[in-house]
């Protein structure tokens, strides 16, 4: 990556900027000299986050309102973002699985935010980056997408789809010199997991943020955060289904 598109003076767009991981990631990139474009729905919160990044780092920070599930608004939104050197997609919701099982609207939101919205906006990003021949894209999926569990398979299936999408996108954009990094965090200590019991390898969002930054900088294909999840999921993937379906988690 050239100096121009990575590091000081480069602009990174954060999609879903008010989530816990996105907050930490935005600050991580701002500390490395990036200007920020923060996109989300909650304008008051975006303004607070923008002020924080400006005071801490003195960088340029803009906010652009973004309604992830209003797909028709995406082309106009993407146009309003202007020229960006990289995009980090941190869109995601994870209501309790049982609500998704019983209530279609909840289930549909899980699918639309975690998968459809990401595809919709990243298609636009990819088309422009491909023509331009530069840029980086990092997409937050989840270890939950590696192997679906009975307690979280609806969210997991959407994240699994998104992981597959990023794998194909990476292959497509490789020739154009655009990197696509799939980030697969385990449980992270944010509002999404607050109150859940006994989460393995729970890490602070700042850890995931620094893993994302380093992954993007070295143009990694897949980043597990924290790293031990790579091995854990490799083992999980070879557990035969006749055993998997009997596991109570």
């Amino acid at each position: 990556m050239s100096e121009k598109t990575f590091g000081k003076g480069a602009r990174v767009l954060i999609l879903g900027a008010t989530s816990g991981i996105a907050r930490a990631t935005a600050l991580e990139f701002a500390r490395r000299g990036f200007d920020l474009v923060l996109a989300g729905r909650d304008r008051e919160e975006l303004e607070i986050l923008a002020a924080d990044a400006r005071v801490r780092c003195g960088n340029g920070v803009e906010i652009v309102e973004f309604d992830a599930t209003n797909f028709d608004s995406h082309p106009d939104f993407w146009h309003r973002c202007g020229d960006v050197d990289g995009v980090i997609c941190a869109l995601g919701v994870m209501p309790p699985q049982q609500e998704s099982e019983r209530d279609w609207e909840t289930c549909r939101a899980v699918i639309e935010v975690n998968y459809t919205a990401c595809v919709s906006i990243l298609n636009l990003v990819a088309n422009d980056f491909e023509v331009r021949g530069s840029g980086f894209i990092a997409v937050l999926t989840s270890v939950a997408g590696e192997r679906a569990r009975k307690s979280n398979y609806i969210y997991g299936s959407a994240k699994s789809g998104l992981s597959a999408y990023t794998e194909g996108l990476r292959a497509r954009l490789f020739a154009a010199g655009v990197s696509v990094t799939t980030v697969k965090p385990g449980p992270v200590d944010t509002a999404m997991t607050w109150g859940m019991e006994k989460l393995p390898l729970l890490v602070p969002p700042e850890k995931v943020a620094s893993d994302i930054y380093r992954g993007v900088r070295r143009k990694a294909d897949v980043v597990f955060s924290p790293a031990p999840w790579r091995l854990i999921m490799a083992i999980m993937r070879v557990v035969p289904s006749f055993i998997w379906k009997r596991l109570d988690f």
Binding site: T18, R23, E44, E45, A191, W194
Partner: peptide, 8 residues
């Protein structure tokens, strides 16, 4: 304990 992350 509850731990809000957003002002609102």
């Amino acid at each position: 304990a509850t731990r809000p992350e957003k002002r609102r």
